[in-house]
Amino acid sequence: MRSVMQQPFRTAVLVLVWGWLLFLVLTPNLLVIGASVMTRDPGTFISLPLNLDAYRQLFNPLYLDVFLNSLYMATMTTLICLLIGYPFAWALSKVPRHRQMLLIFLLIVPFWTNSLVRTYALKLILATNGLLNNALMSVGLIDQPMQMLYTEGAVIIGLVYLLLPFMILPLYAVFDDLREDLLRASHDLGAGRLATFVHIIVPMTLPGVLAGIMLVLLPAMGLFFVPDILGGSRNLLVGNVIKNQFLDARNWPFGAAASIMLTLAMAFLMFAHRLSKRRIGEDGV
């Protein structure tokens, strides 16, 4: 029943949308995959022959160390975010409705503020002659300033600070949907608080936990400016390695291979998330 007259508009829209996505999403991604199996070339960045050297290089002890250390810092960040965020989201879901809106608004305000500037603000607090050291010394807890800046701990604090809302929001969503009838049923059947927590609340909130992990763990490996500002030269993230290899060393195959590993890790987490949701769907109904 479509008239011919409406076709030009439809065609124009589809061409524009497809064109943009094919040129700026599909092609670049294929390019990265291609670059990862090519050879490094000082002139043209990449050249033939095809090989897997870049992937082999990932397992070079030097880089493996950085990757493991980055994974360790990202895992710690995620755990701390989960430890702070889980009870936080729970408590938030119990607050009266009208006040919840305001509290969530307050949670996303920092997210709308420049993340570089916020990281820099932490530097003011953590520096050797910064606010925290001064405060601790004035109350007499320590005699001389502690080295807090340029440590692994400082990087983790920075990452937690930037990423905490990303853990809280998906957790809040699952706590908000938590079915009160199941909790009551569990109580009526004689389950204690711990049993209810382990058998009902944990499985019901698992998709939120996994979504939160997804939104925190991977970015925690990529935010290269956090170690640059707070961590000094020793506490590098995968993001720093990718950036150095691409922008400074001009080793594209290696940078591409490292970023493909990051993407695969993301895909794996997304798969786990989907799986957990499906399980809840079957068990819950």
């Binding site: 990265v32 970023s259 993407t263």
Partner: peptide
């Protein structure tokens, strides 16, 4: 991850 988008576009 943002950094993956960044290098793919630079390429």
């Amino acid at each position: 991850p943002e950094i993956v988008l960044a290098i793919s576009l630079l390429g």
